[in-house]
Design a protein around this nucleic acid. Structure first.
Length: 422
RNA sequence: GGAGAGGUAGCGCAGUCCGGCCUAACGCGCCCGCUUGGAAAGCGGGUAUACCGCAAGGUAUCGUGGGUUCGAAUCCCACCCUCUCCGCCA
């Protein structure tokens, strides 16, 4: 959520941001007029309340019964007026909040302006794309052939876009998770194990509600929501808290499954395990001071890149353009790894600085050591890589002519002696 | 799920029966000053957040949401959370 004062003072900056994001900027005028209306109402109602408070005090001290009765009657009228004005204020505020909650963050000025993902900018490509002397299979053929991915039984259990991992396949995913958590710990992130179900308020804090309600699984009975990413509990963790300045930056890593309805039609983009309704992910998350957030963003990106490098995966770094930038984000880098079998770059990580956007919604501040007033923290999030797609790249890039798969060196300690999946 | 006890400003607590001197006491912690060679102790002062207002100042918040009232931490209703015991259970 943006600062209302900021919108009031620099509406043109927001208008430009919305236009750059390929969105309608007329919402700005609605915000401004509601804000004006709200303040006018506040002045009125607060004057009346001040009057009521002071007269009520007088009433308690008035001895003369007739005079007392007179004052009570007068205040009865004032009370009715206050009730009516309170109601109008509440309704205006509700509208204003709903509007504010629907406005995305301001992209950093350095963000390339573009219509959609086709205008994202590739910053660099690292690692060698493997040259194979045979035709590599895509994982949706490789997996069933090796007996490590069972699509049919996933569908049988739950429905389309679900699968079962078998034996070395399940173990490989578990190895990736354990290895990544350990790696991020070494990189300075503290591990957290969080609930996988949260309340609506927590999703609101992270900016997932109300906007992305269609993409979430919801238990009506208990009114709990399945997390779409660990970013949600990691943001909500400090909701309504004030952190000590000396404790910042605080860096966390967490493994969670992620649940997304993704009501998109089947097709090329969802083939295999690329885009399931349930997938595992290891997340990186940072709380820091505003002046630190750009530096932390670069650190997080480097940490994500290290993950790819150590796995031996060729990858490229993309800078998202205004048209593709996420709702919360100021700057986003995407990491894409090359998958030899499907022959495409797969997005495995999105590393974003969201500035104070989530912190304002979640009300997360820190107490400056110089005694000045509490300030909002900045938050950053990044995937320490999404599992299925990382698995895809590991499987497809390390396949050998006989259809077996070499397990990357770094994962072997977690593979119980399995070096080749065959 | 059942019974009981609780939720008050950073923490601990008082206040709630019986509405208005609550502008929320008191203690601890923390900050500033005095004192000191320096410190402790002692003494004095300060110590929530948000919003409105150029300002003076005002408004709101005692778990949350409603209600009664001129006036609610206090009375009424609903809900949430924590603790103890019981039940159930990996």
């Amino acid at each position: 959520m943006l600062d209302l004062n900021f919108i009031r003072e620099q509406p043109e900056v927001l208008r430009k941001a919305l236009t750059d994001r390929q969105m309608d900027s007329s919402v700005v005028d609605n915000v401004l007029s509601l804000d004006t209306e709200r303040r006018a109402l506040l002045v009125k109602v607060e004057t009346l309340k001040a009057q009521r408070n002071s007269v009520s005090k007088e009433i308690s001290q008035t001895k003369d019964a007739a005079l007392k009765q007179e004052k009570i009657l007068a205040m009865r009228t004032v009370g009715d007026e206050i009730a009516a004005l309170d109601e109008s204020t509440r309704s205006v505020e509700e509208k204003l909040q709903a509007l504010l909650a629907s406005i995305p963050n301001i992209p950093d000025p350095s963000t390339p302006v573009g219509i959609d993902e086709s205008e994202n900018v590739v910053l660099r490509t690292e690692g060698e794309i493997p040259v194979l002397d045979f035709t590599p299979l895509p994982h949706w053929e490789l997996g069933p052939k090796l007996g490590i991915i069972d699509f049919d039984r996933g569908v049988k259990l739950t429905g389309s876009r679900f699968y079962v991992l078998n034996g070395a396949g399940a173990r490989l995913q578990r190895a990736l998770i354990a290895w990544m958590l350990d790696l991020h710990s070494r990189q300075g992130y503290e591990e957290r194990y969080t609930p996988f179900m949260v309340k609506a308020e927590t999703l609101y804090s992270a900016g997932q509600l109300p906007k992305f309600v269609d993409n979430l699984y919801h238990d009506i009975e208990e009114d709990l929501w399945m997390v779409p990413t660990a970013e949600v509990p990691l943001t909500g963790m400090y909701r309504d808290e004030v952190l000590e300045e000396a404790s910042l930056p605080q860096r966390f890593t967490a493994y969670t499954p992620c649940f997304r309805r993704e009501k998109m039609s089947a097709g090329r983009d969802v083939r295999g395990i690329k885009r399931g309704h349930q997938f595992d992910k290891v997340e990186m998350y940072i709380y820091c001071k505003p002046e630190e957030s750009m530096r932390e963003l670069e650190k997080m990106l480097a940490d994500g890149e290290e993950t790819c490098k150590l796995l031996g995966l060729p990858y490229r770094v993309k800078r998202l353009c205004t048209g593709d930038l996420g709702f919360n984000s100021v700057i986003t880098y995407d990491l894409e790894v090359w998958a030899a079998g499907c022959g495409e770059w797969l997005e495995v990580s999105s590393v974003s600085n969201v500035g104070d956007f989530q912190a304002r919604r979640a009300n997360i501040k820190y107490k400056p050591e110089d005694g000045s007033r509490n300030r909002l923290v900045h938050t950053l999030n990044g995937s320490g890589l999404g599992m299925p797609r990382t698995m895809i790249a590991v499987l497809e890039n390390n396949q050998q002519a006989d259809g077996s798969i070499r397990v990357p060196e770094v994962l072997r300690p977690w593979m119980g002696g399995i070096e080749i999946i065959r």
